[in-house]
Design a protein around this nucleic acid. Structure first.
Lengths: 347, 347
DNA sequence: CGTACATATGACCGCGCGGTCATAAAGGGT
DNA sequence: ACCCTTTATGACCGCGCGGTCATATGTACG
């Protein structure tokens, strides 16, 4: 591995001048710059970021703590974060931690700090993540409500509460008396926010707020929840906090002989790519992963590069309800369980 | 940030002794070790990995190049890789590159090398990835056939060819005359391997090999492929190279009035979590992401830590066909497009 | 012609750690 | 008492770079 000293020797300049060229500092003549670049080229020189980090005290790296769960949300958010980080010019360290391990997030944060990251992203924060608050670099809670913010702590919401409201309102607008909710684990901020949004939408119209059915984001847990809901004939509308759970709910309802959407309407949240192609095509609210990640990283990088400065105001990402074929007006009160054929709507 | 010098001073020992304690080197008395640990504790000392890397020349970090596509496969594989890397004690750098950008992989690899990674994983290699062969650290092509291996280049297969054979054999065993294939982009090794496996299974039984229908892994492309296949009444069995495409295919068939599985059987590949809960539940072949990632990282770490040594032989991950309700024997030759009701099978 | 200032380059230090080698202290055998 | 080994510790260098400050070379102005 050639070092900048090798390049300097070949170019006939000092090491510092090579450093100037690669850092695009001023006061380097065009001719010297060319000589240096040529020398670097013939030697195959690459800047050693490790040494640079040690010397400068900054790594231009952000670390992300992600839940090592296989669900659609976290995995997709990770990809979005990666893109957003790359766009800022920073490099990305990833550490996962098992969902539910209380010490996991703390140790993940420690390991990131040892790596010298300039900032930390907690993707899909859960309660255990609060441990990360007391560190000496900016921390972004991606997916936590702004109220969570503290010193050196940033948040970007994916707008969970608004998304949940939109889903619930859609069902109420269709004429359903109330909406049942299949939620994610309460340790997750996203799950709590969605419960809040759903509850607020119901209370605003003075509707009965049925008990929350607990899930764990998985299709299997949605299926279990659906079986429970299928026992109650009064259930005509279900809002599941994630598309995977929604798909499980629908399956359970169909297995119980309920038609979707004729007997029961189901709304998901995510708009995962297959949502448009399952049967029936799923009405859902798109989750703005890319927008939230970009917005959050803008904040984080700002906090890194302008310590102490005010943060630009975060804008809530747009709410996008995608109406497909899993929702319809409630059945008329005269319950005719007509076993008619299921209608296929295009996405 | 306290340094090891601060700890040394407080503990009344030399800096090198602190280093010995933290690297678990021998020849440190229990009493000194305790003094050092206590001092480190009260100071809140953390090892500076950047300095350590500069001094030792090794970062204990591996980099992964992933396609920045939102599909199920790459995203899930990334999570599996993260876990596998963490288990080895290495840290993880992630760089994504847009699928199809020819310069993307090369620049991603360069940026990882600048970060000083000890090894590189190319996740889901495509043709453009060959550029990564000529680097000075071990490279693992996760998902490429072993034949691809070169100097300092390792591969772990996810067993795509075998998985495709299993899917195709399953359909042939059910009595289908032949099997149509909806493939991924040919630039992907995984897509080509699956085509090979499918073709081999057909040729082994001397069946007609129909033309490949091209997709791009997305459910939308599967839907388009399904519409094309639905025009041909002779199509009774379809193997889609990914679950998302399979779901799209099924949707298109249903929209065209074909029943699944009564008229047409469809097999996917992945076994994504929702596969068991779509309608009809999808017969598919599980993709062994975790096993492949673990196996691959074992190889990579071995290559990093024992340069020049022989590599342990890689074992093919097990093939796991999950039979659900999207496959059945072909309809009897007397084509009765009976519009009977769809039967719901449990997962 | 000299002074002031922008421009262009280099000498040198230190970031925080691991590695090498020297050395001090403590047994163990003769 | 002697040497030899094992155990335990420290002095010192350098990894490759950025930062600071001094210095050399123009360039414009009075």
């Amino acid at each position: 591995m050639p070092s900048s000293a090798d390049v300097a020797r070949l170019a006939g300049v000092s090491r510092k001048t090579v450093s100037r060229v690669f850092n695009e500092e001023p006061y380097v003549s065009a001719e010297v710059r060319r000589r240096v670049m040529d020398a670097a080229d013939t030697l195959g020189y690459r800047l050693n970021q490790t040494a640079r980090a040690l010397a400068s005290g900054r790594t231009r790296t952000v670390g992300v703590v992600t839940l090592g769960t296989p669900g659609y949300g976290p995995a997709t958010l990770l990809v979005s974060i990666e893109r957003a980080v790359r766009d800022t010019g920073y490099a990305l360290h990833v550490v996962s931690t098992m969902d539910g391990d209380p010490a996991g997030i703390a140790s993940a944060v420690t390991s990131l700090l040892e790596q010298g990251v300039d900032g930390i992203v907690i993707s899909e924060p859960v309660d255990e993540g609060k441990a990360a608050i007391r560190v000496d670099v900016p921390v972004l809670f991606l997916g936590a409500p702004p109220a969570f913010a503290a010193a050196r702590t940033l948040t970007t919401s994916t707008g969970s509460e608004l998304l949940a409201r939109a889903a619930t309102d859609h069902l109420l607008d269709l004429g359903h008396a109330t909406v049942h909710h299949v939620a994610g684990p309460r340790r997750w901020y996203a799950a709590r926010d969605r419960i809040e949004g759903w509850r607020a939408a119901l209370e605003e119209r003075r509707r009965i707020v049925p008990p929350v059915v607990a899930g764990d984001w998985s299709a299997a847990s949605g299926h279990a929840a659906g079986r429970e809901l299928a026992r109650d004939d009064d259930v005509t509308a279900v809002f599941a906090a994630g598309d995977e759970m929604a798909i499980g709910v629908i399956r359970a309802l169909l297995e119980a002989g309920r038609r979707v959407p004729e007997d029961v309407s189901v709304v998901g949240l995510d708009d995962m790519p297959v949502a448009a192609y399952v049967t029936p095509p799923l009405t859902t609210v798109r989750q703005p992963f890319d927008a939230a990640a970009r917005e959050g990283l803008k904040l984080l990088v700002h906090a890194i590069e302008n310590p102490g400065a005010d943060l630009p105001a975060a804008t809530d990402p747009p709410v996008e309800l995608v109406v497909r074929a899993s929702t319809a007006p409630p059945p008329s009160r005269a319950k005719s369980p007509s076993q008619g054929e299921i209608s296929w709507h295009t996405a």
